[in-house]
Protein backbone atom coordinates (compact mmCIF):
# COMPACT_ATOMS: atom_id res chain seq x y z
CA UNK A 1 0.00 0.00 0.00
CA UNK A 2 2.75 2.45 1.05
CA UNK A 3 6.36 1.96 0.10
CA UNK A 4 9.42 4.11 0.81
CA UNK A 5 12.54 3.16 -1.16
CA UNK A 6 15.77 4.89 -0.08
CA UNK A 7 13.92 8.17 0.40
CA UNK A 8 15.87 11.32 1.21
CA UNK A 9 14.12 14.64 1.66
CA UNK A 10 15.97 17.94 1.96
CA UNK A 11 14.34 21.29 2.54
CA UNK A 12 16.55 24.14 1.25
CA UNK A 13 20.17 23.64 2.33
CA UNK A 14 19.57 22.35 5.81
CA UNK A 15 20.39 18.82 6.94
CA UNK A 16 18.08 16.24 5.36
CA UNK A 17 14.70 15.85 7.08
CA UNK A 18 14.76 12.21 5.93
CA UNK A 19 17.91 10.29 5.10
CA UNK A 20 17.73 7.09 3.07
CA UNK A 21 14.47 5.86 4.58
CA UNK A 22 12.95 2.57 3.41
CA UNK A 23 9.87 0.76 4.75
CA UNK A 24 6.69 -0.88 3.56
CA UNK A 25 3.20 -0.58 5.04
CA UNK A 26 0.73 -3.26 4.01
CA UNK A 27 -2.91 -2.69 3.20
CA UNK A 28 -5.07 -2.55 6.34
CA UNK A 29 -2.08 -2.11 8.65
CA UNK A 30 -1.99 0.28 11.63
CA UNK A 31 1.42 1.94 12.13
CA UNK A 32 2.71 4.28 14.83
CA UNK A 33 5.40 6.70 13.62
CA UNK A 34 7.28 7.84 16.65
CA UNK A 35 10.40 9.73 17.62
CA UNK A 36 11.38 13.11 19.01
CA UNK A 37 10.32 16.41 17.47
CA UNK A 38 12.13 17.03 14.20
CA UNK A 39 12.87 13.33 13.69
CA UNK A 40 11.01 13.33 10.35
CA UNK A 41 7.53 12.02 11.27
CA UNK A 42 5.64 14.84 9.57
CA UNK A 43 7.97 14.68 6.55
CA UNK A 44 7.00 11.04 6.05
CA UNK A 45 3.28 11.85 6.27
CA UNK A 46 3.68 14.76 3.83
CA UNK A 47 5.52 12.59 1.33
CA UNK A 48 2.79 9.93 1.53
CA UNK A 49 0.29 12.73 0.87
CA UNK A 50 2.57 14.02 -1.95
CA UNK A 51 2.90 17.44 -0.38
CA UNK A 52 6.23 17.78 -2.07
CA UNK A 53 8.30 15.00 -3.61
CA UNK A 54 11.36 13.20 -2.28
CA UNK A 55 14.76 14.67 -3.13
CA UNK A 56 16.03 11.15 -3.76
CA UNK A 57 14.41 7.73 -3.80
CA UNK A 58 10.79 6.81 -4.44
CA UNK A 59 7.52 6.91 -2.53
CA UNK A 60 4.73 4.64 -3.73
CA UNK A 61 1.16 4.94 -2.47
CA UNK A 62 -1.31 2.46 -3.98
CA UNK A 63 -0.81 2.85 -7.76
CA UNK A 64 0.87 6.27 -7.51
CA UNK A 65 4.65 6.73 -7.64
CA UNK A 66 6.41 9.95 -6.67
CA UNK A 67 8.61 9.46 -9.74
CA UNK A 68 5.76 9.41 -12.22
CA UNK A 69 2.86 11.27 -10.64
CA UNK A 70 1.57 14.26 -12.60
CA UNK A 71 0.31 17.39 -10.90
CA UNK A 72 -3.27 16.77 -11.96
CA UNK A 73 -3.16 13.27 -10.40
CA UNK A 74 -2.28 14.60 -6.95
CA UNK A 75 -5.87 15.57 -6.02
CA UNK A 76 -6.93 12.03 -7.05
CA UNK A 77 -4.33 10.55 -4.70
CA UNK A 78 -5.33 12.84 -1.86
CA UNK A 79 -8.93 11.69 -2.07
CA UNK A 80 -7.63 8.21 -1.33
CA UNK A 81 -5.38 9.39 1.49
CA UNK A 82 -7.13 11.25 4.35
CA UNK A 83 -5.12 13.60 6.56
CA UNK A 84 -5.77 14.53 10.20
CA UNK A 85 -3.85 17.42 11.77
CA UNK A 86 -2.83 17.98 15.36
CA UNK A 87 -4.20 21.52 15.30
CA UNK A 88 -7.51 20.42 13.73
CA UNK A 89 -7.54 23.04 10.92
CA UNK A 90 -11.27 23.60 10.90
CA UNK A 91 -12.91 26.64 9.35
CA UNK A 92 -14.06 28.69 12.32
CA UNK A 93 -16.95 30.32 10.49
CA UNK A 94 -18.57 26.98 9.58
CA UNK A 95 -20.44 24.53 11.79
CA UNK A 96 -19.23 20.96 12.26
CA UNK A 97 -21.63 19.78 9.56
CA UNK A 98 -20.59 22.58 7.21
CA UNK A 99 -16.90 21.79 7.70
CA UNK A 100 -17.54 18.21 6.58
CA UNK A 101 -19.85 19.37 3.78
CA UNK A 102 -17.09 21.74 2.62
CA UNK A 103 -14.77 18.78 1.98
CA UNK A 104 -17.51 16.94 0.11
CA UNK A 105 -18.21 19.98 -2.06
CA UNK A 106 -14.51 20.38 -2.77
CA UNK A 107 -14.32 16.86 -4.10
CA UNK A 108 -17.33 17.17 -6.35
CA UNK A 109 -20.04 15.35 -4.40
CA UNK A 110 -23.47 16.29 -5.81
CA UNK A 111 -25.27 18.72 -3.50
CA UNK A 112 -28.30 16.46 -3.20
CA UNK A 113 -26.15 13.79 -1.55
CA UNK A 114 -24.11 15.98 0.72
CA UNK A 115 -26.53 16.34 3.63
CA UNK A 116 -27.11 12.61 4.04
CA UNK A 117 -23.37 11.91 3.74
CA UNK A 118 -22.54 14.54 6.36
CA UNK A 119 -25.05 13.05 8.80
CA UNK A 120 -23.66 9.58 8.24
CA UNK A 121 -20.05 10.74 8.68
CA UNK A 122 -20.79 12.70 11.85
CA UNK A 123 -22.73 9.69 13.16
CA UNK A 124 -19.73 7.49 12.40
CA UNK A 125 -17.48 9.63 14.61
CA UNK A 126 -20.18 9.97 17.32
CA UNK A 127 -20.82 13.64 16.73
CA UNK A 128 -24.30 13.74 15.17
CA UNK A 129 -25.81 15.73 18.07
CA UNK A 130 -23.19 18.47 17.67
CA UNK A 131 -23.63 18.91 13.91
CA UNK A 132 -24.75 22.53 14.22
CA UNK A 133 -22.04 23.58 16.65
CA UNK A 134 -19.21 25.85 15.61
CA UNK A 135 -15.61 24.70 16.31
CA UNK A 136 -15.24 27.19 19.19
CA UNK A 137 -18.25 25.52 20.86
CA UNK A 138 -16.64 22.05 20.67
CA UNK A 139 -14.07 20.45 22.95
CA UNK A 140 -10.68 19.45 21.56
CA UNK A 141 -11.75 15.82 21.25
CA UNK A 142 -14.94 16.81 19.45
CA UNK A 143 -13.07 19.07 17.04
CA UNK A 144 -10.69 16.23 16.25
CA UNK A 145 -13.70 14.00 15.50
CA UNK A 146 -14.96 16.59 13.01
CA UNK A 147 -11.52 16.55 11.36
CA UNK A 148 -11.64 12.75 11.19
CA UNK A 149 -15.16 12.87 9.69
CA UNK A 150 -13.84 15.34 7.12
CA UNK A 151 -10.86 13.12 6.34
CA UNK A 152 -13.20 10.13 5.88
CA UNK A 153 -15.52 12.05 3.54
CA UNK A 154 -13.68 10.84 0.45
CA UNK A 155 -13.68 7.21 1.68
CA UNK A 156 -9.89 7.01 1.77
CA UNK A 157 -7.95 3.77 1.75
CA UNK A 158 -5.21 5.34 3.88
CA UNK A 159 -5.67 7.64 6.85
CA UNK A 160 -2.69 9.74 7.97
CA UNK A 161 -2.76 11.39 11.37
CA UNK A 162 -0.15 13.89 12.57
CA UNK A 163 -0.14 13.89 16.38
CA UNK A 164 -3.94 13.71 16.43
CA UNK A 165 -4.04 13.41 20.22
CA UNK A 166 -1.29 15.94 20.88
CA UNK A 167 -3.72 18.62 22.03
CA UNK A 168 -6.15 16.32 23.86
CA UNK A 169 -6.54 15.23 27.48
CA UNK A 170 -6.33 11.55 28.39
CA UNK A 171 -10.06 10.83 28.13
CA UNK A 172 -10.38 12.51 24.73
CA UNK A 173 -7.19 10.77 23.57
CA UNK A 174 -8.67 7.38 24.39
CA UNK A 175 -11.91 8.21 22.58
CA UNK A 176 -10.20 9.52 19.44
CA UNK A 177 -7.72 6.63 19.40
CA UNK A 178 -10.57 4.12 19.62
CA UNK A 179 -12.12 5.82 16.64
CA UNK A 180 -8.92 5.26 14.66
CA UNK A 181 -8.94 1.60 15.71
CA UNK A 182 -12.51 1.20 14.45
CA UNK A 183 -11.65 2.90 11.15
CA UNK A 184 -8.65 0.58 10.80
CA UNK A 185 -10.77 -2.45 11.67
CA UNK A 186 -13.07 -1.50 8.78
CA UNK A 187 -10.09 -1.94 6.41
CA UNK A 188 -8.46 1.49 6.19
CA UNK A 189 -4.67 1.65 6.54
CA UNK A 190 -3.75 4.05 9.35
CA UNK A 191 -0.38 5.78 9.82
CA UNK A 192 -0.31 7.81 13.01
CA UNK A 193 2.58 10.05 14.02
CA UNK A 194 2.78 10.36 17.79
CA UNK A 195 5.30 10.90 20.53
CA UNK A 196 2.85 9.67 23.16
CA UNK A 197 4.90 6.77 24.56
CA UNK A 198 2.06 5.82 26.88
CA UNK A 199 -0.36 5.41 23.97
CA UNK A 200 2.15 3.16 22.19
CA UNK A 201 2.82 1.15 25.33
CA UNK A 202 -0.90 0.55 25.87
CA UNK A 203 -1.28 -0.82 22.33
CA UNK A 204 1.38 -3.49 21.93
CA UNK A 205 -0.33 -5.03 18.90
CA UNK A 206 0.39 -2.02 16.70
CA UNK A 207 3.50 -1.77 14.54
CA UNK A 208 5.98 0.94 15.58
CA UNK A 209 8.38 2.78 13.27
CA UNK A 210 10.77 4.90 15.29
CA UNK A 211 12.65 7.79 13.70
CA UNK A 212 15.65 9.75 14.82
CA UNK A 213 17.41 12.52 12.87
CA UNK A 214 15.55 11.58 9.70
CA UNK A 215 16.36 7.87 9.78
CA UNK A 216 14.35 4.81 10.81
CA UNK A 217 16.13 3.50 13.90
CA UNK A 218 13.59 0.87 14.89
CA UNK A 219 10.86 -1.09 13.12
CA UNK A 220 8.99 -3.52 15.38
CA UNK A 221 8.26 -5.80 12.41
CA UNK A 222 11.79 -6.13 11.06
CA UNK A 223 13.16 -6.27 14.60
CA UNK A 224 11.24 -9.48 14.94
CA UNK A 225 9.55 -8.37 18.11
CA UNK A 226 6.09 -8.60 16.61
CA UNK A 227 3.95 -5.68 15.68
CA UNK A 228 4.42 -3.85 18.97
CA UNK A 229 7.57 -2.55 20.65
CA UNK A 230 9.39 -4.99 22.92
CA UNK A 231 10.54 -2.42 25.48
Amino acid sequence: MIQFRSVTKRYARSAPALDDVSFHVRKGEFVFLTGPSGAGKTSILKLIHMQGLPTEGEVRVSKYSSRKIRRREIPELRRRVGYVFQDFQLLEGLTAAENVAFALECTGTPRSRIEARVQRLLGQVGLAPRARSYPRELSGGEQQRVVIARALSTEPVVLLADEPTGNLDERATTGVFELFRRINAAGTTVVMATHDAELIRRNPGIRVLELEDGAVVYDSVSAGTGPGRST
Binding site: Q51, Q89, A103, T107
Partner: peptide
Protein backbone atom coordinates in the same frame (compact mmCIF):
# COMPACT_ATOMS: atom_id res chain seq x y z
CA UNK B 1 -4.90 30.35 3.06
CA UNK B 2 -6.31 27.92 5.64
CA UNK B 3 -9.28 27.29 3.38
CA UNK B 4 -6.99 26.67 0.41
CA UNK B 5 -4.81 24.40 2.49
CA UNK B 6 -7.85 22.35 3.56
CA UNK B 7 -9.04 22.16 -0.04
CA UNK B 8 -5.64 20.84 -1.12
CA UNK B 9 -5.61 18.36 1.74
CA UNK B 10 -8.97 16.82 0.89
CA UNK B 11 -8.09 16.56 -2.80
CA UNK B 12 -9.73 19.51 -4.52
CA UNK B 13 -8.35 20.19 -8.00
CA UNK B 14 -6.37 23.36 -8.70
CA UNK B 15 -9.06 24.75 -10.98
CA UNK B 16 -11.70 24.08 -8.32
Amino acid sequence: SREISIMQTVGATDSF
